[in-house]
Nucleic acid binder design. Structure first.
Lengths: 235, 235
DNA sequence: CAATATCGAGAACACTGTTCGCACATCAGT
DNA sequence: ACTGATGTGCGAACAGTGTTCTCGATATTG
C-alpha cells in the first residue's frame, strides 16, 4: 500500500534507528545498569520527553537492546559456523564456541546484558527475545540432530540415567532428540557460558594470559561431551 | 587497652551493624542495581546524610555487601563440606557443588552480586574481597591436594597438552599443583558456575522441574573431571 | 482550506547519591 | 567540673534520574 513513505513515516523510522544507535553507543559505554534515557536524548540532541514518543519507557529500551544484541550475536556466530564444512561437526562446535567467546570479549556490556545478572524490576518479554535469543543454541541443537552416529554415552559415575535425561528432553522443546545427546549439549552449553562469564566478569584471579588455555580446555571438554573420543568413532 | 567500649564506640558498632543488616535486607529485596542508600536510611529511621558518617558512599556499601555475601557463602559451603568424611573426596566435591547451588537459589540477589555481571563504574577492591572470595575455591584446591592418586588425565581430544596446563598452574597462585589437576578443577568450577548462573538467570527456557537433573549431570561431570571413573581407581 | 493526528519541547514531580553547615552529645585534659 | 576538641545526626541543597503533561508547531487527510 504505502509504496513510498511520507515524510512523517520516513522521519519516524529515521529517529527510531537513531534512537537505537544512540542507545547502543550508550550501552557499550556505560553498561546496562548505567543506561540513562536522558543521556541517550542528549546524544541525539533531543529533549528526554520526546523519546517517549518512540519508546514506552526505559524497559522497552532495554528490550530493544536485548533483542538487538541477541541478533548481532546470533548473526556473528552463525556466520562463523557457516564457513565450516557441514560434515565437520566437531569443527562446527569449535566455531560456535570460539565465535561466541570472541563476540563476548568484543562486546562485554552486551554479553553482560544477555548472560549476566538480570536487570532488577525488569523481566524481558519472552515473546520478543525468544526468536533471536535461541539462535545460537539452535545451532547447537542442529549439530546434535545431524550427528548420525549414536551418542557415545560416556561412562561418568553418578550421571543421571537415560530415563531422567530423556525426561529432560521432553521438558525442553526438543522432543525428537534423545536424552543423552540433549544432556551433552546442555552441559557443553552451560560450561561454555560459565567459562566465558568467569573470564569476562573476572572471577578467576590474575592469570589473564592463560585464559586462552582454560577456554581451549572448555572447548575440548564440550567437544568430547558432544562427540566423544575420536577412537570411539573408529570402533 | 580499651577493655570496655565507651558509649560512643558502642553506639558506632551498633549503628554499623544495623546499617549492614538493613543493606542486606534491601539487597535481598531489590537486588544490587536497585540498592538505594536512601531506602536503607529509611529502613533505619535515619536521615540519608547520616549514613555517610559510616560509609564513604554507595560503593563502599556494595563492598561491604560483597564481603559479607562471600563470607556467608563460604561459611555455608564449608559447613556442609566439613560434615563429609575426609576420605570421601568425591562426596566432598558433591557437597561443595550442591551446597553452592543451594545457597545460590536461596540467595539469588547475593549470588548475582558475586557471580553475575559486575556493577558498572564500580570495581571491588581485591584486597578486601579476596580473603572471603576464595574460600570456596580454596576448598576445591584442598580437594585436589589431598588426592594422592595421580590425576586420571582423561583422553579428551584437542585438550591442551600438559605443558600448557602446567603454565596455567604457574600463572595462578597454586604452583604446587600439577597442571592436569588444576585444569580439571578450573573446568569443574567454571562448569558449576555456568550451570548455576544459567539456572538462576533463567537462560534455559522453561523446564524448571528438570533443572535438578541438569545440575546432577553437571555435578557428575565435575566429579569425573576431578577423579575419573571408578574403574580407573581399581586399575 | 479545515480538521486531525503526530511530534518536539519545556516544565514539573518524585525519586536518587552526595555535600555542607549547623546544632548537640560525648570525649579528653586540666 | 569546666573547656576545647571530636564525633554524630539532621535539614537543606545541588545535580542527576525516569516519567507525565501540556502546548504550540507541523504534516497528513478529508
Amino acid at each position: 500500500m504505502t509504496s513510498t513513505m511520507g515524510t512523517r513515516e520516513r522521519r519516524r523510522s529515521e529517529v527510531t534507528a537513531a534512537l537505537l544507535a544512540a542507545a547502543k553507543r550508550e550501552l557499550a559505554r556505560t553498561g546496562a545498569a548505567g543506561l540513562s534515557v536522558r543521556a541517550v536524548a542528549r546524544d541525539m540532541d533531543m529533549a528526554p520527553s520526546a523519546l517517549f514518543r518512540y519508546i514506552s519507557g526505559r524497559d522497552e529500551l532495554l528490550t530493544l537492546l536485548i533483542v538487538d544484541a541477541y541478533s548481532r550475536l546470533g548473526e556473528h556466530v552463525e556466520a562463523v559456523e557457516r564457513a565450516v564444512p557441514r560434515s565437520d561437526l566437531r569443527g562446527r562446535w569449535r566455531a560456535i564456541a570460539t565465535s561466541f567467546r570472541g563476540w563476548a570479549v568484543a562486546n562485554p556490556h552486551e554479553y553482560a546484558l544477555l548472560y549476566g545478572s538480570p536487570v532488577p524490576e525488569y523481566k524481558a518479554p519472552a515473546e520478543r527475545t525468544n526468536p533471536s535469543g535461541t539462535r545460537v543454541t539452535n545451532l547447537l541443537a542442529a549439530l546434535g540432530m545431524e550427528d548420525a552416529t549414536p551418542p557415545p554415552r560416556p561412562s561418568i559415575p553418578h550421571m543421571p540415567d537415560a530415563a531422567e535425561l530423556r525426561a529432560l528432553a521432553v521438558a525442553a522443546d526438543v522432543p525428537t532428540m534423545d536424552g543423552d545427546r540433549l544432556a551433552a549439549g546442555l552441559l557443553a552449553w552451560t560450561a561454555l557460558v560459565g567459562a566465558v562469564s568467569s573470564e569476562l566478569f573476572e572471577q578467576l584471579g590474575e592469570p589473564v594470559a592463560r585464559l586462552d588455555t582454560l577456554f581451549d580446555a572448555t572447548v575440548a571438554l564440550g567437544e568430547w561431551l558432544l562427540f566423544g573420543s575420536p577412537r570411539d568413532e573408529s570402533a
